[in-house]
Design a protein around this nucleic acid. Structure first.
Length: 121
DNA sequence: CGATTGACGTACG
DNA sequence: TCGTACGCCAATC
């Protein structure tokens, strides 16, 4: 029996946070996805904010989560400020073959990786 | 303990 | 069609 005796007895799957981490780790190199896409894949399209918030926790996770492959719906590296250093996010993306200009991913529609599509749910 | 924020996105006016 | 408001769940103040 789980340690937590929360009100949610319907915990059939892991927490939303954990699911986010799992999906982010499934992102292949050279591909990126958006917070909303992950949230939508998890069945909560409106919880895009939560996905980003989960990334904050991702920094102390093991193994580390490739948060640099997660950007907003516009393809902008909005979360770069939370990296160390912030420019590290762009460097990591370029190292995987993803070109970034002015914190904006080039050909975002091409490198975009939609979990609900690639995972063929 | 209660209110606000937070790496966004969708819905509504 | 464009602009504004709300929602998601958890953590922080």
């Amino acid at each position: 029996m789980p340690t937590s005796n929360t009100l949610q007895d319907h915990n059939e799957e892991v927490s939303f946070f954990d699911m986010v981490y799992q999906v982010v780790r499934l992102i292949p190199e050279g591909r990126v996805t958006s917070y909303g896409a992950i949230g939508s894949y998890l069945g909560a399209a409106r919880s895009a904010r939560m996905v980003g918030w989960a990334m904050n926790n991702a920094h102390h996770l093991d193994p580390p989560v490739p948060a640099h492959r997660v950007v907003n719906r516009a393809g902008q590296l909005t979360g770069r400020a939370h990296f160390n250093p912030p420019e590290r996010m762009q460097e990591l993306l370029e190292a995987e073959g993803v070109n970034v200009t002015e914190h904006q991913i080039d050909h975002f529609d091409t490198v975009f990786w939609d979990p609900s599509v690639e995972l063929s749910l």
